[in-house]
Design a protein around this nucleic acid. Sequence first.
DNA 1: CTCTGATCATGT
DNA 2: ACATGATCAGAG
Length: 439
Amino acid sequence: MIKFDTEEALLKFTENIKGRTFKELDKLNLLATKKRDKGILGKIVETGFYRYPLNNDIEADFSELGIELKVSGFERTKTGLLSAKERISLSMIDYHTIIHETYEFSKFLLKNRKLLIIWYEYERGKERGDFKVWDYQLYNMSQDEHVIKNDFHLIQEKIKNGKAHLLSEGDTSYLGACTKGRDGKVRVTQPNAEEPARPRAFCLKNSYMRGILRSINEEQKTEQTTIKTVRDYIYKQIETYIGMTQLEIYEKLTNKQMTGRIPKNIGKMISDQMIGKDNELKQKHDLFNKTTYIIKNVPVDEDYNLLERLTFRNIVQSEFADPWDESDWKKYFEEVTFLLICYEGKGKKNGHRTLKGMKEITFNADDIDSFGKTYEKIRQAIGKKDIALLPYPKTFPYQKLEIAPKGLGGDDAYNTFFDRDRTKTCLMMDKDFVRSKMK
DNA sequence: CTCTGATCATGT
DNA sequence: ACATGATCAGAG
């Protein structure tokens, strides 16, 4: 077993792992003996490369240096970008003890302040032993401390309030509370409520990991700002306009009068200026770098009930080649947070609704499953070349996502569905469902 | 009313 | 020239 006296020594040694496959590293032949072990790649690196004995100790892997080893996969997207394969799981959350811990001394931080992340490339269809390590990275949690600390406290508060069973990964920005256990049926007790809760562990969320991965060659910089959540950030941008109509805001922002017909996307024109365009958000604030945020503008009534469905971009048939579990749409919905800029004005014309506030929504496993049904119906329709099989509204119980037309005047959208790989249709999301997701 | 197929100004 | 983000408007 190798001891490292300094970080530099550890990193220098780790440099040699680049380019190695797990087969080459697997000195104890774990690939053959522990076929079903999900953590096997990590164990191979620990035992085969660093020559540590197998351990499940609470102490950090490189305890002298306070560094925990994590072996994590990435994929290359079609456009060549890197994307983290999974979230990184940290320590289990003990519902009974966490309520007495402070962040600074919590078990969570004790073990996870610094992570040595070994990045290997995951390739579908390839044997695990053939996956290759491409790079490594010493990640220091303090680089995003203010956000992570805030996330920690959000999770802790929920448990204190007897709501451990209501925890969800969507509650937080970077640090999540992800479910654990062999299947979805396992339950444990919680301190301040009778309700049993699913066991959970802290994790660094997938979208955050992607941000970490892409920053691999960038200098670490520490945030100075006091803004802790995207919610805070957006709210600061829109605050001064609350109560004004869309037209008033547009005119104030652009110093131009809106003449002629009011564009249907006036809300987006405003939010592009007030907050930034979706693909500019990354540059506006580091928070946007590590999670996918999409801003949507929606009309609501006085109780925030949506007046319209959420619409998405035009779909193309080739997007539906992969089964749901491997699809880009699934990844998108798992990862994305929608920021809904709400304009109140039931019965009012477009342009004359007033800015009311902002809501955030994310999707849980049930939602994702339901979206999958919609997705698979589109695949069936494509496979059988039968538009009758498309997921029109209300084609199955509790449907949350539906297909809808989206074209120019005169398009007979559904009937041109198979014409070429460009459809005049899109997905729309049920408004009552969206309302139920707002916090 | 609400639902759902149809439509449009703008951005790229 | 067409997709996007969103609303419109007729049907029921």
